[in-house]
Simulated scan of single mutants.
Amino acid sequence: MRFFIRLNVSSFLYAMFPFAVLELMANVYRISRVTGWELSHVNKLILAFCVAGITVSNIAFPKLIRHWLDGRKASYFSLILWFPYFVILVSILVSWLPITEPADQPNPVTGLIAMAALALYPFYLGILHLFGTTAKNMDR
């Protein structure tokens, strides 16, 4: 039971990264309008957030797998379990903060970028899981 809870919490954490990145990308105009910053400044901040997030996740996810999920092969289930959490997070945000101004609509290309990112994210997680489980097996 303990592993099941840890697996679901780690899957939720895995869903938080693409959720934050994609929502920041989709809400560039809203962030610019609310804060009063220029679009170039908002885009630079989002890029910095993405680079920092990738750097932190490259370090933290294998450690999480190794220590918290005990490097088990069953931790590969989180490669599938993160997606329902992502859908729940997006549904909550869309219902709580709907786009009311037409000027805040994201560019059409943002949807293509989101689809590509969501299609590649399980492979990224799979590589990180591979590092997390093999490092645990090498420690034994």
Rank of each mutant, 00 (worst) to 15 (best):
F3K: 00
F4W: 04
N8M: 06
V9C: 05
S10L: 09
F17A: 01
F17R: 00
F19I: 00
M25A: 03
Y29V: 05
R30S: 08
V34H: 07
T35E: 06
W37S: 13
W37F: 15
E38L: 06
L39T: 14
S40H: 12
H41F: 08
N43Y: 13
V51D: 01
A52I: 12
A52R: 01
G53V: 06
T55L: 09
I59Y: 12
A60W: 10
A60F: 12
I65L: 12
I65Q: 10
R66S: 09
H67A: 04
L69S: 01
G71P: 03
R72L: 14
Y76P: 02
S78P: 04
S78D: 13
I80H: 04
I80K: 04
W82Y: 15
W82C: 02
F83E: 01
L89Q: 11
S91T: 15
I92A: 11
L93F: 14
V94R: 15
S95G: 06
W96E: 15
W96H: 11
L97V: 08
I99S: 10
I99E: 13
E101I: 04
P102T: 08
Q105H: 08
P108A: 03
V109I: 13
V109F: 14
V109C: 02
G111K: 02
L112E: 13
L112Q: 10
L112R: 03
L112K: 07
A117V: 15
L118E: 04
L118D: 05
A119W: 15
F123Y: 13
Y124R: 04
Y124E: 07
G126R: 06
I127P: 01
I127D: 03
L128E: 05
H129P: 02
H129Q: 10
H129K: 03
G132A: 02
A135H: 05
M138F: 13
R140T: 03
